[in-house]
Amino acid sequence: MLNYIFKRLVWAVVTLWVVITITFLLMHSIPGNPFAKEGTMPEAVYNNLQQYYHLDEPLAVQYVIYLKQLAQFDFGPSLKSKTITVNDYIVNGFPVSLHLGIQALIIAVCFGLIFGVIASLNRNRWPDYLAMVLSIIGISVPSFILATFLINYVAVEWRLLPVATWESWSHTILPSISLAMMPMAYIARLMRSSMLEVLGQDYMYTAKAKGLSRHMVILQHAFRNALLPVVTVLGIITTNLVTGSFIIEKIFGIPGMGEMFVIGIFNRDYPVILGSTIFYAAILIFLVFLVDIAYTFIDPRIKITGEGE
């Protein structure tokens, strides 16, 4: 097990390095640079800025400088803000995105699983159709449309919840729901098909023939087996949720990471783009690793051995 974890760690570093390199090259191949747009800037000031941020150096030198900096866990300064570094951005923005993301994740997983199970147990009857119609809507309606609807009705018309910003817990409800809809629908569909497959297995007859009650059969024998495909996608879903959806954050005016990423791209704010991409990649790699570990708890047939089999 330790051996396996070490091996995964080495691969994680390699993957991260590849991500860094590709992002670095792609970013610099976009036309323009962070200071070019500001036309009124005197030539000397422009040159000074370029020099200060090493932007006048050849790309290879800049790359080495960045890697050195990164080795000290320093994502560098933001080129657009005089006082805030990328580290500050992440430290300030990530907890907010994380909070929103975890709330959305809880909603998505709980309701997704419940809807999926209900649909599978009532196959081809109205609860199944209802759950599946809802999940089709959840998958096909973009989150910004849902968010606008929610703001219009729940917040503006009925005045049940605040419209925007990020202050008390009641401010977090609408963005969490908007963000959770799509993964919830996806999980519901996945869980339904997975449950249907498990319910048709021979060992369901065995469980029933033992005289177990229906809910015991479903909870203890079907649910756990059906969970495996859902766990597989959970890593990616979680990453998407916790690193912030810039659309939802933009609409609700939430000071999370998503917004910073988009503004960074508009401004060609190189350190911000790189910093947030690397951060995102690191979280994804970590969660996929967690999912692999989680498999071994759910399915005893999967064993982690550290050997390359």
Binding site: Y203, Y205, A209, K210, Q220, P300, R301
Partner: peptide, 29 residues
Amino acid sequence: RGNEMGMIFQDPMTSLNPTLTIGRQITEG
């Protein structure tokens, strides 16, 4: 079921739940 009548199925490869120990599967009845 299980108490007064027991049943053995055809394919032992698929008739046992892969995610529970056999001890658990025997004792739950």
